[in-house]
Nucleic acid binder design. Structure first.
Lengths: 246, 246
DNA sequence: CTATATTGTGTAATTATTACACATTTGATC
DNA sequence: GATCAAATGTGTAATAATTACACAATATAG
């Protein structure tokens, strides 16, 4: 300990005791998690929002969030909070970014960590404990409570980037999907239009789609073939991409 | 307020009062920032580390970190801490990820936000207040204190990804550089070898390098031409890339 | 002046991307 | 069952990007 103290005074660095006291006393801050849950329905990208119950944000929508407990891993808190708010449990959450301006929350200093997920609206039935929980078309998401608009924008941009580099999109689709559904999904996420023939060519040449020899049912036009994504093949082939492009 | 309380009991949602009390009392957690500062020297990618002063981690190296103050924006804390530890002030810090397992710090619960930067070792003279602050070849970075190895690995992977998509690398080079230096940089960051002719072709075809009509000095072989990066042109042309590739 | 090290340059083959049009199949309607 | 509407399924030519690869020129060091 003597050594530590000497080192500390010589180099202006703290001992474990000092750090412990700082950690335990004056320097603590409330920490929260906010979940941005994306879904896909009616050819539209949606996000799950809850009505804010704070007077300050009366009538405005907000992300699904709550405080992290002191004895709880950050990731575990994210899953707990999502479960609490929606009943959803078997979804994968991914950390996106942390927002920490001093005055972002009216109740005091709260730093929040944003998590994001993509779910299949059909397969994950929401436990709507709260009737103010709703899917919103991302085109109509404006003016969220707190700094949630900024958090949402950040998550959407990250989704747009990641969906182009990884086969995330399939989490948003039914297990069996048509190429049209797949293309609609990409067009909704990326907010763009793509050439149908080139889109098909691209996916067929990747060779990750398994032709199920089944057709769409109940569509009011010629039905398309159904496919599923070959995750095994993708995992094996996962390429280490090296290239410069900006 | 009555309305708020009713809403709260009906929907199991908290009032501002309850939240305020939670934020102020039992649920606070210490928050820190750790900085991963990359540099480039002698054709090697380096990272700035400081010797850990905790007995538990005796002799091991760690990232540059400290606690965030309750009345300080998270980004501001990152700049303050970097300044304090190294004297560096005119560098750009970028948030990478947040690490929050319960037992990651021996002094108690500390959630940490990792920030990353790239600096030119020649141009940014360190204020080495602490003689245990050193540049380490990233090839020799192992067994860091705390969970800093994991944090470092995450930041390095993000750097590898980002340097391929954005002209970040130039922050690590002198203002005037040769194509060989540029290629060495990419090879060091990506840990790979590239074909010299194709590398040149690629950069010339992007057309972001300004030929300074100057030659390298004091090299023990035929000197190469010097270039600088045309940031203005890059900013104007910045493309919205859309494509699927995995 | 010789040796060494590194710069600077071009082409052919392959692969990926883009733009673009028409016949086919189904369900719905009359 | 004929017709319509709406979507599926398919191919090619032009262009652009990537890869693999070898030799002459130039500077410094000795």
């Amino acid at each position: 300990m003597i050594t530590e103290e000497k080192a500390a005074s010589a180099k202006n660095i703290k001992t474990l005791q000092v750090i412990q006291s700082e950690v335990e006393n004056t320097n603590r801050i409330a920490l929260s998690v906010d979940c941005v849950i994306f879904g896909f329905d009616e050819s539209k990208l949606k996000v799950l929002l809850i009505r804010s119950d704070l007077k300050k944000f009366a009538g405005r929508w907000s992300l699904l969030g709550d405080l992290v407990f002191p004895q709880e891993d950050l990731d575990a808190a994210a899953y707990r909070i999502l479960k609490q708010r929606t009943g959803l449990s078997d979804v994968y959450l991914e950390q996106v970014s942390t927002f920490g301006t001093v005055s972002r929350h009216p109740a005091g200093r709260v730093v929040t960590v944003a998590y994001c997920s993509l779910i299949n609206v059909q397969h994950h039935k929401l436990n709507i404990l709260d009737n103010e929980l709703h899917w919103h078309d991302i085109k109509n998401v404006t003016d969220l409570a707190f700094d949630h608009q900024q958090i949402f924008d950040t998550c959407l941009r990250q989704l747009q980037k990641r969906v182009q580099e990884h086969p995330l999109g399939f989490n948003l689709l039914p297990k069996k999907f048509s190429l049209r559904e797949l293309q609609n999904l990409y067009e909704a996420i990326l907010d763009t239009k793509m050439d149908r023939r080139n889109f098909r060519k691209k996916f067929f040449s990747m060779d990750f789609l398994i032709d199920l020899d089944e057709m769409e049912q109940d569509v009011p036009h010629r039905p398309g073939k159904l496919y599923k994504f070959n995750y095994e093949k993708y995992e094996k082939r996962k390429k280490k991409w090296v290239g410069i492009d900006f």
